[in-house]
Nucleic acid binder design. Structure first.
Length: 807
RNA sequence: GCCGCUGUGACGAAAUUGGCAGACGUAGCAGACUCAAAAUCUGCCGUUGGUGACAACAUGCCGGUUCGAGUCCGGCCAGCGGCACCA
């Protein structure tokens, strides 16, 4: 069969007959199958895209044949840093390169032959899309979920520009090698923390991989404890967060994050020099380094002291970089005796260590970090763990010096980017009115084309006079636009809501349509999105729900991650390593069905692995054998014949294939589904050699085989389906159903173990009870011989499996 | 470092969720067809010992639970993903 020809033929047929489009009038149950959309950074579709879209399309086609009205859209996440970097390097405008890349990728995506509903395509860099990204921003702002505050960015003083984390290599600028430091800018944030608790709770209800849920739980990082207020000698107050309030009497010191504003205020003259230098050093360290528990703890005494509210003790205040200003209150109490980090810190700086917790025996070695009994803690002595914590917090509450507090590690989402290639932030800064949102009827705030995007100290948009200067919508006086753009994660946080109503010019979506089409029934994409994209999308859904637009709580009911296809050398594919595999080279030679089948058969879908094309021929061989079977099935009229053990055996294989392929497809276990189909082909080949007169059994088995194969090799199966004389697309036919009766075999082989070692095999009737099996097996002459006259102490019979005789 | 995952023949992998380890496929070996090659078809194929029936060993390493462990528990080792401005 000429695969390339038939692919064109059927792709054309599907498009003309709208087989792939979702029909709004379809009354069957909807199924929204979504793959993470493509980022058009490289000009070409890579194996990763193919691996995501090919097999998932097979899943969608399977669902369609199972009777669902399937909606499977596709689009492009088109804004982002790589296009801008490419522009800086080559001078090609990001819009031009992106539009061009999208065009190439569209063709490649069509070549997959997936049933994408192209009538609903979206591109996030087009004004008709980002108009609504901006709308989303304004809605969040209106509802108190967007706000501005100071936050540090990576700053390269030589390039005079903000760097992405990716552009910082070993603390230096990837372009010029200058040391990078943190600089504060006023930036926009989304208040995702408002939803911390719900984001955590609702995870339980989701059909997501457990590991992904686990990662989100850790990312949200709920911890229950207390906030305790310390007061300095100067009368300044600050709070620390602690989960171990029971150790409060043992505080040896307190630590403020170096960025904490009180550091600069409280530092004494004699410590100023050291402390300011330390703050400067901290600005160079990355967060991962700062939190590393093997890195030596550093810190500087700031010369001031704080009062422990529970016992009035004076303790020194340090600035230390292992405390992050963004987490909790940006201040912690140090209890040397009961925390490893604090213990090291105290030894290093020669501070007091006071043990306030002990084990039952009273001989705990320090640092002792588990729960225990209080000592040296006044009225609380003898209390244990949770009770001690509650008692102390209640006491603090009485004193007005503290309270119970739940803390989350989750931070608000910083969405400002000092870059060009993104959706402009739709606010205006007016000298008189302050921050003024752009009125809805003035959206979109269009991204100008003629900008200077090479880095020279200012955001590209800030240099564009025409863009920047506008009038204040409130007072009408001259004002400036926000020069920043939105994080591309904002674009991708709501795209699944746009798809079903992709061309709505009056609203981001029609709530009536959306509430019918969502949530997404199956979402498939890389595991690297476990925390960020998947959390942001959940947050946006909840925020829009609370604004009254949506009637569902979660965007993605069920989630699957595909594995990563590595280069043949076992490393991640990258241009610099020269190990990139291009799907096109395979698709243009063997055809897209062969390539798709190979991806589905060669890997465990959720694990992926190194690329190796040794076995790709086997797929061609497999399809050739099916084509041959199909020819033979067409050659003669199906005639009902005798049902002998041969037909029974073929039907057994056929129906167990239907059963396992059905459930394997549902579980994304594509490699085993195809293995089962290969077994069926082998069984059919074997049956053919018998030259039986029952062509009906054979014919039925072949047509069923083709239906089962159809989702995985759509063009090929469609072609054979037509050759079998069918006039309608195979994807409009019903999925095969297995017959329970055909699955019952008359006899089963039992493994016989003596003392748990396999020694013998016996074929027994399927209808026997455990008792009967035990009796027959014990009477067996071979078993008698193996037992050498020893009396069995115990016999374990597992039906349809094995018999274990303990002697 | 922290969080999460993975580890099974020469190779990609499978294993009804605690029940005959290695289905299916690659590669390899032997044979059939062919002048020959390719293609196709048939058989063998975890390691070691044995002509053989068979036996011993075997799921990264060490230990545990169990009649029985690739699967459960504890401790290591190695590799991979994420860590908030790559998307």
């Amino acid at each position: 069969m000429n695969m390339l020809e038939i692919e064109k033929k059927w792709q054309k047929y599907w498009a003309e007959n709208k087989i792939n489009e979702y029909d709004e009038n379809d009354t069957r149950k909807k199924f929204y199958c979504l793959e993470m959309f493509s980022y058009p950074s490289a000009a070409k579709l890579h194996v990763g895209h193919w691996y995501n879209y090919g097999p998932t399309d097979s899943y969608a086609r399977y669902k369609k044949m199972k009777g669902f009205a399937v909606f499977q859209p596709m689009g492009f996440d088109a804004f982002g840093l790589p296009a801008e970097n490419f522009a800086i390097k080559t001078g090609v405008h990001p819009q031009d390169s992106t539009v061009k890349n999208i065009e190439t990728m569209e063709v490649q995506l069509q070549n997959i032959g997936a049933m994408f509903d192209w009538s609903k395509e979206i591109k996030t860099c087009m004004p008709d899309y980002y108009k609504w990204t901006q709308w989303l921003f304004l809605k969040l702002y209106e509802n108190g979920l967007a706000y501005r505050k100071e936050a540090p960015v990576n700053w390269c003083s030589s390039c005079n520009t903000v760097l992405a984390n990716e552009q910082v290599v070993d603390g230096k600028c990837e372009r010029c090698g200058t040391e990078v430091f943190k600089k504060d800018l006023t930036q926009w944030f989304f208040k995702i923390t408002e939803y911390s608790e719900e984001l955590l709770q609702k995870l339980d209800e989701l059909d997501w991989p457990e590991k992904t849920k686990h990662m989100q739980r850790n990312w949200i990082g709920k911890s229950t404890g207390a906030e305790v207020e310390f007061e300095t000698e100067s009368g300044d107050k600050f709070k620390v967060f602690t989960t171990r309030c029971d150790t409060l009497f043992g505080v040896s010191f307190v630590v403020l994050a170096p960025e904490h504003p009180l550091v600069k205020k409280l530092v004494t003259d004699d410590c100023k020099e050291k402390v300011f230098k330390y703050i400067e050093e901290t600005a160079k360290a990355s967060e991962i380094d700062r939190l590393s528990s093997t890195r030596e703890k550093t810190g500087e005494f700031i010369g001031a002291y704080a009062i422990n509210p529970i016992n009035g003790k004076k303790v020194p205040i340090f600035a230390a970089d292992y405390v992050l200003y963004s987490y909790g209150t940006g201040a912690v109490m140090g209890v040397a005796a009961h925390d490893e980090r604090d213990y090291d810190f105290c030894l290093k700086y020669g501070l007091n260590v006071l043990q306030v917790i002990n084990n039952k025996e009273g001989n705990a070695t320090l640092p002792y970090c588990e729960d225990g009994y209080l000592q040296n803690s006044g009225e609380f002595d003898g209390l244990y763990g949770e009770d001690a914590r509650n008692a102390i917090i209640n006491k603090l509450k009485e004193l007005g010096k503290g309270d119970f507090k739940v803390n989350y590690r989750l931070r608000d989402w910083l969405v400002s980017r000092q870059r060009y290639w993104g959706a402009p932030i739709p606010v205006i800064h007016c000298e008189h009115c302050g921050v003024v949102p752009v009125p809805y009827d003035q959206l979109p705030v269009e991204l100008p084309y003629d900008v200077e995007f090479r880095p020279d100290g200012k955001s590209p948009l800030a240099k564009h006079e025409g863009f920047m200067h506008t009038t204040c919508p409130k007072c009408g006086k001259p004002a400036l636009r926000d020069p920043d753009t939105l994080d591309t994660f904002v674009c991708s946080s709501w795209y699944y809501l746009r798809y079903p109503d992709a061309h709505n010019a009056d609203a981001p979506f029609d709530p009536e349509i959306i509430n019918k089409m969502l949530p997404v029934d199956k979402y498939v994409g890389g595991p690297e999105h476990a925390c960020m994209h998947l959390l942001y999308a959940r947050f946006i859904t909840k925020a829009l729900r609370d604004m009254g637009y949506l009637k569902f709580d979660e965007p993605f009911k069920s989630l699957t991650h595909q594995g990563i296809i590595l280069g043949p050398d076992g490393n991640r594919m990258s241009k610099s390593r020269g190990n990139v595999i291009s799907p096109d080279t395979y698709v243009s030679v063997s055809g897209s069905d062969v390539f798709r089948l190979y991806l589905m058969f060669g890997f465990n879908y959720t694990e992926g692995g190194p690329w190796n094309d040794d076995g790709i021929k086997s797929i061609t061989k497999f399809l050739d054998r099916i084509e041959k079977l199909c020819e033979n099935a067409c050659a003669t009229q199906p005639i009902k014949g005798e049902i002998t053990t041969d037909e029974k055996e073929l039907n057994f294989v056929l129906h167990s294939t239907i059963k396992s392929v059905d459930s394997d497809m549902d579980n994304f276990s594509f490699n085993t589904a195809i293995a089962r189909l290969m077994e069926l082909v082998n069984a059919l080949k074997k049956y053919e050699t018998l030259e039986k007169g029952n062509t009906e059994t054979f014919y039925n088995a072949v047509t069923t085989l083709i239906k089962l194969l159809a989702p995985c090799a759509p063009h090929f199966s469609e072609e054979l389906w037509e050759r079998l004389g069918n006039k309608q697309s195979i994807f409009l036919s019903d999925y095969p159903v297995f017959d329970e009766k055909a699955l019952v075999r008359d006899e089963v082989e039992y493994g016989v173990q003596i003392n748990s070692k396999l020694r013998h095999k016996i074929v027994l009737s399927n209808s026997l009870t455990q008792k009967e099996i035990e009796e027959i097996v014990l009477k067996d002459s071979k078993v008698q011989e193996l037992l050498q006259g020893k009396a069995p102490k115990k016999v374990i019979v597992i039906l349809k499996r094995l018999v274990n005789i303990i002697a």
